[in-house]
Design a protein around this nucleic acid. Structure first.
Lengths: 221, 221
DNA sequence: CCTCATCAATCTGCATGCATAATTATGACT
DNA sequence: AGTCATAATTATGCATGCAGATTGATGAGG
């Protein structure tokens, strides 16, 4: 049922998100076409979609490469992510029902257990589901989609974040605070806690990259 | 320099935004190809981009048509627009310099004069520039791009809004308030005023519709 | 008269070919 | 030897062709 272009788009997307295709990697149509055993046409369509979702950069007549944003750009994206999540949390506090709060608490617990078990990939999934639940809990499907899309887009740069165990504990504490605020219907608190929760990741990213100095400044234009 | 696909994409975009291609219109590749005097290939690419920017809907094997979202969906989009604008206004109040405030006041005055002159299209442009200035004034280029993109995407549905003269006067008053708040550095006021300014356009049915959940799925397409 | 099944016309998705621009490799000149 | 200019190679953008799916049109049956 899924078209070839869709399939290629998905496979490339996961490879980019999982870090197999690092930022800056050039994606040449003939090579991809041969690799997937298809012609260039569906490959081109797949690249178009990835370009639209902001994962790759498609310069006219100059080829496609995995997006390699500057540090400043990434910080900007985390800022927007923080604001989107803050809005979701606020609307969630306003509109959430008992069912959603139960789901939220379930994922919170899942985050805690996977973190305790040092299961990194399971923690990532639980964390993603936790945030996803808040997006959906906003009661605004469009907002949820936008948040999900940006979350995905930022995944390649969030990957290194939670290697620091102390940050992970603090992150769990913030999750608990957000759930409490949402359950209490405290919109302002939910918004504020969630915004800072994400903003810290942006700052952490800056700290992380500053270790590498200007080398990471390799801008894709 | 601009590729054929880019050109077609832009032309279709303006036609959709300006209402020449109403929501629900089917876009057939052979017809467009003949109309623009090119082959189907660049037409397909153009449609892909429009699909990515959310102006058209591209169902596999079932063709492309101008996006015709349900009322509930439009309300959701306006709600997100309101939140994005609110964030821009808040950051603008925090970071704006004298130069930006001068520009903002200039566009505000342009809005007033074009409104007084009943020049609808000129007013639209002045209004767009006014909001655009706030986006840029946020100091976050990524945020500005997102806001601009959503603003464009909502244009077909905002077109009928300001036909009501009373709404137009109120809109101008709200603009004045936002500028005042930004100039005073009052982040909370700027955020609040701007959010309501946009929310009124979406008619504030967000809370109402969220209670019904899937009931808002009554899609006309 | 209306509903449903079958068939023709049309459109979409993918493959392939070609011209042009960009990238890389090579050689001449300072 | 280093730098610049030139040529070969490669990739991109668009045109064209074909198989399969979808749309609607036509005719049979209730």
């Amino acid at each position: 049922m899924a078209s070839v272009a869709d399939d290629i788009s998905e496979r490339l997307e996961t490879e980019i998100v999982e870090g197999l295709l690092p930022p800056g990697t050039r994606l040449e149509e003939p090579a991809l076409a041969e690799r997937f055993g298809v012609s260039r046409t569906p490959v081109r369509e797949a690249l178009q979609r990835l370009s639209a979702s902001g994962l790759v950069e498609l310069k006219p007549r100059r080829g496609t490469r995995v997006l390699n944003p500057s540090i400043g750009r990434i910080v900007e994206m985390f800022e927007v992510m923080a604001e989107l999540e803050a809005v979701c949390a606020r609307l969630c506090a306003r509109r959430a029902d008992a069912e959603l709060i139960r789901t939220l608490k379930a994922w919170l617990m899942s985050c805690e257990t996977t973190a305790a078990a040092q299961d990194v990939s399971a923690y990532y999934e639980a964390n993603r589901q936790f945030h996803h639940t808040i997006y959906r809990g906003s009661g605004n499907g469009f907002l949820a989609e936008q948040a999900e899309a940006l979350h995905l887009r930022l995944t390649p740069f969030r990957r290194q974040q939670l290697r620091v165990p102390r940050r992970l504990r603090q992150s769990l504490a913030e999750h608990t605070q957000v759930v409490a605020a949402i359950e209490a219907g405290d919109e302002a608190a939910a918004e504020s806690v969630q915004r800072d929760h994400i903003l810290i990741q942006g700052e952490r990213f800056g700290d992380f990259l500053s270790q590498f100095g200007a080398a990471a400044q390799a801008d894709a234009g």
